[in-house]
């Protein structure tokens, strides 16, 4: 039985390490974890997959013996297929989701920063309404958007919107676009994701 030492690791690292170890160790694994969320999460992970788990406390944490074969839950939806055609991201606000404005702005920043790390990126990002505030001087998202532009993603900000927010001369990344182009691109894209 393989032993993995996940002591000192915060979630979700112990669960990910456990899952990986189980995939290559048919005899099961012994996971050393700290008490609290790491132990609870690994235990929950094992139980929800129908695995047998034996927990033993020791001086430096917990030893979890997990046996059985990993059965991944089947997804109710088909896995994402590559889209044949242009993928367009439509950003109509400087905030992501409904709720506190501060949180919405943070989530939008996080989303754009995370896009840099994703394997599947959009071909084009259109910024409308307060979404244009993400592309102007002083925006916290400039570094990420500049890197995305350098990676070949077309960034286009609505000119009417920049003008409305008195930011027309402050555009710092991408280009200005108009509603004709915006409408055409929305209607011809293979996939449009609106944030």
């Amino acid at each position: 039985m393989t032993t993995i030492d996940c002591r000192g690791q915060a979630c979700p690292a112990p669960v990910i390490a456990t899952k990986k170890a189980l995939e290559t160790s048919p005899d099961g694994v012994c996971v050393l974890v700290d008490d609290g969320p790491p132990r609870e999460n690994v235990t929950r992970f094992a139980r929800t997959r129908g695995l047998t788990i034996t927990e033993t406390a020791n001086a430096s944490g917990w030893s979890l013996q997990i046996t059985g074969s990993v059965s991944l839950p089947t997804s109710p939806v088909a896995p994402a297929q590559p889209v044949d055609g242009e993928r367009l991201l439509l950003i109509t606000s400087d905030r992501l989701g409904e709720g506190a404005d501060e949180l919405g702005r943070l989530l939008m920043r996080n989303f754009l920063h995370t896009l840099l790390e994703t394997a599947q990126r959009p071909d084009r990002i259109l910024f409308l309404n307060s979404g244009v505030l993400l592309t102007v001087q002083g925006a916290e998202t400039l570094e990420a958007l500049t890197a995305l532009a350098a990676a070949g993603i077309d960034l286009a900000s609505c000119g009417v919107c920049l003008d409305f927010y008195q930011q027309k001369d402050q555009l710092a990344v991408g280009r200005v676009t108009n509603m004709f182009s915006t409408a055409e691109q929305l209607l011809s894209a293979a996939l449009v994701i609106r944030l």
């Binding site: 690791q9 979630c11 996080n110 920063h113 995370t114 570094e143």
Partner: peptide, 16 residues
Amino acid sequence: ILLIPAPRALATDCGL
């Protein structure tokens, strides 16, 4: 400074 999502290599609860 820049507030960013914590990289995957640095496991964290809130991810900032």
